Simulated scan of single mutants.
Amino acid sequence: MIELEVDRPLTSNGKVALVTGAARGIGLGVAAWLIVEGWQVVLADTERERGAKVAKVLGENAWFVAMDVSQESQVVEGVAQVLGQFGRLDALVNNAAIADPHNPPLDSLELAHWNRVMAVNLTGPLLLSKHCAPYLRAHYGAIINITSTRAHQAEADTEAYSASKGGLLALTHALAVSLGPDIRVNAVSPGWIDARDPSARRAAPLSDADHDQHPVGRVGGVEDVAAQVAWLLSASAGFVTGQEFVVDGGMTRKMIYA
């Protein structure tokens, strides 16, 4: 069951955002937040049935397009659909990813798994940026890459995911230099975000220990990431590009000794 809450009257700011991986989790949270702020949001995802249902729940300011971001032909077709429907594009949020950070131990890590993670998590944002750039440039738009604190620190057996997010962080500042001054490019690096559907969170709530280990006293929610993304897309962030914004409740600044 899909549960969303959009309880403020919606107005339009005339701008269009494309959010990938938007059928659930952080991507869905970002899409819902932007809609409340007046954006027309295109949700892109491989989950066709769920994506269409989510867009219907979000209302007339949401529109769904099926897309595997690792396939250039699908990216080209998806971007063409967006331009055909709305005639403009003002923002791209590269959120789609194979999100489970864990893979088999290094000695049994298959190259196919590595390549698939890289294709979705790193090549996908490159392809979207490449094909959206001409339209973003026309409106002095912005690109936000959703990276991860695992670009800086890791658990065991997370080589593919950590490397993909580290690469995406480097791609962020490379794109910022290449696409400026017409397009700003920034990265948001979430820490522990409880991105489960509300029903799953109610059925298996996180423990006090999970929350208390964070310097802010709680695990993050999708709205924490969405708020940061929305600010970076706003005129208030007009002097900000090529930067990383860590949204992790302070965990990467905490020294932890067992």
Rank of each mutant, 00 (worst) to 15 (best):
I143K: 08
L122D: 08
S164I: 05
A112Y: 00
R150L: 15
T149Q: 08
A119Q: 09
M118A: 13
N115D: 15
K165P: 07
L111G: 00
S164W: 11
Q153S: 13
Y161Q: 05
Q153A: 13
N94Y: 08
P125L: 02
E155K: 14
Y135S: 06
V120T: 15
A156R: 15
A119I: 00
V117Y: 10
L128V: 05
D100K: 14
P101L: 01
S164G: 03
N103L: 04
I146H: 11
I146W: 11
V120I: 13
L128F: 12
M118G: 01
T147L: 03
A142M: 04
D100W: 03
D90V: 03
E110R: 14
R150A: 09
A160G: 06
N95C: 11
D157F: 11
R137E: 14
E155R: 13
T147E: 10
L92Q: 05
W114S: 03
H131V: 00
T158N: 00
N95W: 02
A91W: 10
P101T: 05
A97L: 07
P101Y: 05
V120W: 10
E110H: 13
I146N: 10
K130C: 04
H131Y: 15
S108I: 14
D90S: 03
T149H: 02
D90M: 01
N95I: 06
L122M: 12
H113N: 11
G124S: 07
L92Y: 12
L136H: 07
H102K: 13
D157P: 00
D90I: 00
S108R: 15
N94H: 10
N94Q: 05
P101A: 03
K165G: 08
M118W: 10
L109M: 05
N103H: 12
P105F: 05
N145Y: 12
N121E: 01
A96I: 02
L89M: 10
N121I: 01
A96K: 05
D90N: 11
V93P: 02
H152P: 00
G124Y: 09
Y135T: 01
